[in-house]
Deep mutational scan, measured.
Amino acid sequence: DYYEVLGLQRYASPEDIKKAYHKVALKWHPDKNPENKEEAERKFKEVAEAYEVLSNDEKRDIYD
């Protein structure tokens, strides 16, 4: 669930989505996790995908 990936509720505002994305993206950035790079890359891609969908009103409506 994209909301879960970003740690958000379904009623999150666009500002909340952006803030959550930056927080979680920093947490899972591969450069910040050199000891667990493969998992970090996978999680970072999930976070980016979730943000791409939830930050676009049209894609978010379809997802919801």
Results as ranks from 00 to 15, higher is better:
Tyr2Phe: 11
Tyr2Gly: 03
Tyr2Leu: 15
Tyr2Lys: 07
Tyr3Leu: 01
Tyr3Ile: 01
Glu4Asn: 15
Glu4Pro: 00
Glu4Trp: 05
Glu4Ile: 01
Glu4Met: 04
Glu4Lys: 10
Glu4Cys: 13
Glu4Gln: 15
Val5Tyr: 01
Val5Cys: 14
Val5Ala: 14
Val5Glu: 05
Val5Leu: 11
Leu6Thr: 03
Leu6Lys: 01
Leu6Arg: 02
Leu6Ser: 02
Leu6Cys: 01
Leu6His: 02
Gly7Arg: 03
Gly7Ala: 03
Gly7Tyr: 00
Gly7Asn: 09
Gly7Glu: 11
Gly7Cys: 05
Leu8Ile: 12
Leu8Asn: 03
Leu8Thr: 11
Leu8Phe: 00
Leu8His: 01
Leu8Ala: 09
Leu8Gln: 04
Gln9Trp: 01
Gln9Cys: 10
Gln9Lys: 14
Gln9Asp: 08
Gln9Ala: 14
Gln9Tyr: 07
Gln9Ser: 12
Arg10Trp: 07
Arg10Leu: 04
Arg10Asp: 06
Arg10Lys: 15
Arg10Gln: 12
Arg10Ile: 03
Arg10Gly: 08
Tyr11Leu: 13
Tyr11Glu: 15
Tyr11Ala: 13
Tyr11Trp: 11
Tyr11Met: 12
Tyr11Ser: 14
Ala12Pro: 01
Ala12Ser: 10
Ser13Glu: 08
Ser13Asp: 09
Ser13Tyr: 06
Ser13Gly: 11
Ser13His: 05
Ser13Thr: 15
Pro14Lys: 14
Pro14Glu: 13
Pro14Thr: 14
Glu15Trp: 02
Glu15Leu: 06
Glu15Asp: 15
Asp16Glu: 11
Asp16Lys: 04
Asp16Ile: 01
Asp16Phe: 00
Ile17Gly: 02
Ile17Val: 15
Ile17Ala: 02
Lys19Ala: 14
Lys19Trp: 09
Lys19Asp: 08
Lys19Ile: 10
Lys19Ser: 12
Ala20Val: 01
Ala20Tyr: 01
Ala20Leu: 00
Ala20Gly: 07
Ala20Met: 04
Ala20Asn: 06
Ala20Arg: 05
Tyr21Glu: 01
Tyr21Ile: 01
Tyr21Phe: 11
Tyr21Gly: 04
Tyr21Asn: 01
Tyr21Thr: 01
His22Leu: 12
His22Phe: 12
His22Thr: 10
His22Ser: 12
Lys23Leu: 14
Lys23Gly: 08
Lys23Cys: 11
Lys23Asp: 14
Lys23Pro: 01
Val24Ser: 11
Val24Tyr: 14
Val24Ala: 10
Leu26Lys: 15
Leu26Gln: 10
Leu26Thr: 11
Leu26Ile: 10
Leu26Trp: 07
Leu26Arg: 14
Leu26Pro: 10
Leu26Ser: 14
Lys27Asn: 05
Lys27Thr: 15
Lys27Cys: 09
Lys27His: 10
Lys27Pro: 01
Lys27Gln: 09
Lys27Leu: 13
Lys27Asp: 05
Trp28Ser: 08
Trp28Asn: 08
Trp28Arg: 05
His29Pro: 04
His29Gly: 07
His29Ile: 04
His29Leu: 10
His29Val: 06
His29Thr: 08
Pro30Asp: 03
Pro30Ala: 09
Pro30Met: 05
Pro30Leu: 06
Pro30Ile: 03
Asp31Gln: 10
Asp31Ser: 09
Asp31His: 06
Asp31Cys: 06
Asp31Tyr: 04
Lys32Gln: 09
Lys32Pro: 02
Lys32Leu: 08
Lys32Trp: 04
Lys32Asp: 05
Lys32Thr: 09
Asn33Gly: 06
Asn33Cys: 10
Asn33Pro: 05
Asn33Ile: 04
Asn33His: 15
Asn33Phe: 09
Asn33Arg: 06
Pro34Val: 10
Pro34Met: 12
Pro34Ile: 09
Pro34Tyr: 05
Pro34Ala: 12
Pro34Glu: 09
Glu35Trp: 03
Glu35Thr: 10
Glu35Pro: 08
Glu35Arg: 06
Asn36Trp: 02
Asn36His: 12
Asn36Gln: 08
Asn36Pro: 03
Lys37Trp: 03
Glu38Leu: 13
Glu38Ile: 10
Glu38Cys: 13
Glu38Asn: 08
Glu38Ala: 13
Glu38Trp: 06
Glu39Gly: 05
Glu39Pro: 00
Ala40His: 07
Ala40Phe: 04
Ala40Pro: 01
Ala40Cys: 13
Ala40Trp: 03
Ala40Gln: 04
Glu41Phe: 08
Glu41Ser: 12
Glu41Cys: 08
Arg42Gly: 08
Arg42Phe: 08
Arg42Leu: 14
Arg42Ala: 11
Arg42Lys: 06
Lys43Met: 10
Lys43Gly: 03
Lys43Phe: 08
Lys43Pro: 00
Lys43Gln: 07
Lys43Trp: 03
Phe44Pro: 01
Phe44Cys: 07
Phe44Gly: 05
Phe44Ala: 13
Phe44His: 05
Lys45Trp: 04
Lys45Ser: 10
Lys45Arg: 13
Lys45Tyr: 07
Lys45Cys: 10
Lys45Val: 09
Lys45Thr: 10
Lys45Met: 13
Lys45Ala: 13
Glu46Trp: 02
Glu46Ala: 12
Glu46Gln: 10
Glu46Leu: 13
Glu46Pro: 05
Val47Met: 06
Val47Gln: 04
Val47Glu: 01
Ala48Val: 04
Ala48Thr: 15
Ala48Cys: 14
Glu49Leu: 12
Glu49Arg: 07
Glu49Cys: 06
Ala50Pro: 00
Ala50Phe: 00
Ala50Arg: 00
Ala50Glu: 01
Ala50Lys: 03
Ala50Leu: 00
Ala50His: 00
Tyr51Val: 01
Tyr51Asp: 02
Tyr51Phe: 14
Tyr51Asn: 02
Tyr51Ile: 01
Glu52Gly: 12
Glu52Val: 08
Glu52Gln: 14
Glu52Asn: 12
Glu52Thr: 13
Val53Asp: 00
Val53Gln: 11
Val53Gly: 01
Leu54Cys: 02
Leu54Thr: 01
Leu54Ala: 02
Leu54Asp: 01
Leu54Phe: 00
Ser55Ala: 12
Ser55Pro: 00
Ser55Leu: 09
Asn56Gly: 04
Asn56Ser: 12
Asn56Met: 08
Asp57Ile: 08
Asp57Met: 11
Asp57Tyr: 08
Glu58Trp: 08
Glu58Lys: 12
Glu58Cys: 11
Glu58Ser: 11
Lys59Trp: 05
Lys59Ser: 13
Lys59Tyr: 13
Lys59Glu: 07
Lys59Val: 03
Lys59Ala: 11
Arg60Asp: 03
Arg60His: 04
Asp61Met: 14
Asp61Glu: 14
Asp61His: 12
Asp61Thr: 12
Ile62Gly: 15
Ile62Cys: 13
Ile62Arg: 15
Ile62Ser: 15
Ile62Ala: 15
Ile62Val: 13
Tyr63Ile: 06
Tyr63Ser: 04
Asp64Leu: 09
Asp64Tyr: 02
Asp64Ser: 05
